[in-house]
């Protein structure tokens, strides 16, 4: 343990870093990770991260059945946005098979993915606000998430572990009145987001705690292979939906919010803005949804 001591000064104090074990069961109750942090007061000097507490052997289980059997496992990879995982896996298998899903299916996949992305960001931002003490924001965001989960349930039959994608299509078509319900739900979600924005973004406490903390620079983010809103918060304007478009993202208009400083506050802002962009995408896709079959025949 490093220690520093000044010699022969009567008021000299010896300081040592403190080691604190956070987890694996810890109050941030989503996901388990063990952090053994070395603290200098309140500043984290070094961390040792221990993962594997939620290793459930997906890859090994995937060896045991046909390709569609993997889809329930794919749901549970990132259980906050399970539809995106479903479709990511289905897209990989479809690429290997050399097939492409029908146009209607691709639009449906875009709509469901973006709804899933909004629920993901709601959970993420809500939970991080809760951990800072802003429990009200968490409640508001979970309320908004419930509305979206009701939509997801209307389409897929399940709120969370949906198993909706299939190789070559999706499980079932969108139900009747889905477009009207979605538009209404997105209006309500927008109101909630405005409220939460008013509660957090210019909040002195929130800003003090989130600005300048957890800084990841551009080079570090790229070297660690980070993608998604984390990377965009660090200033790299890389979104695979724009760079390597899949499904019908190249036909839909949306912006890619990018942060500057790579701190927690930028990542929060990126996520809030991405929710708005996702809602834009859903509305465009609903407008342009074509008819036709949803599963290809092969």
């Amino acid at each position: 343990m490093p220690e520093s001591a000044t010699l022969s000064a009567p008021s000299a104090t010896e300081t040592r870093h403190m080691f604190l074990n956070i987890g694996p069961s810890h109050p941030a109750m989503h996901g388990i990770v063990q952090l053994i942090v070395e603290l200098d007061g309140e500043r984290v000097v070094k961390t040792d991260v221990e993962i594997g507490y939620l290793h459930r052997g997906f890859e090994k289980m995937s060896e045991l059945g046909p390709y569609n059997n993997v889809i329930p496992y794919a749901d549970r990879l990132n259980y906050v946005s399970p539809l995106i995982n479903n479709f990511g896996y289905c897209l990989a298998v479809e690429r290997l098979l050399g097939i492409e899903a029908t146009e209607r299916c691709q639009f449906i996949r875009v709509i469901m993915s973006e709804l899933s992305r909004i629920t993901d960001h709601l959970t993420c931002v809500g939970a991080s606000a809760m951990e800072l003490g802003a429990f009200t924001v968490f409640l508001y965001m979970i309320k908004a998430r419930e509305w979206l989960w009701e939509l997801v349930e209307a389409v897929t039959g399940a709120r969370l572990t949906v198993s909706y994608g299939r190789v070559g299509g999706v499980k079932a078509d969108l139900p009747g009145h889905f477009a009207a319900r979605t538009r209404k739900a997105l209006e309500d979600v927008r109101k909630v987001l405005l409220e939460c924005d008013a509660l957090l973004t210019r909040n002195r406490i929130f800003m003090d705690r989130m600005q300048g903390t957890g800084i990841i620079s551009k080079e570090q983010a790229i070297s660690y292979g980070i993608t998604g809103p984390f990377l965009r918060g660090s200033g790299v304007a890389l979104d695979v939906r724009k760079a390597n478009p899949y499904f019908v993202y190249d036909r839909l208009a949306f912006d890619v919010p990018t942060g500057e400083h790579g701190d927690n506050y930028d990542r929060y802002l990126v996520r809030m803005e991405e929710m708005e962009q996702s809602m834009r995408l859903v509305e465009q896709a609903l407008d342009r949804l074509p008819g036709g079959p949803i599963n290809i025949d092969f």
């Binding site: 993962i51 594997g52 290793h55 052997g57 890859e59 090994k60 289980m61 060896e63 045991l64």
Partner: peptide, 20 residues
């Protein structure tokens, strides 16, 4: 060192000769 399994684990689980 091991990342996902614990230190005392014997074997390498994703090898095809490790029963699931």
């Amino acid at each position: 060192r091991r990342l996902l399994m614990y230190e005392g684990f014997q074997g390498h689980p994703l090898r095809k000769d490790y029963p699931f």
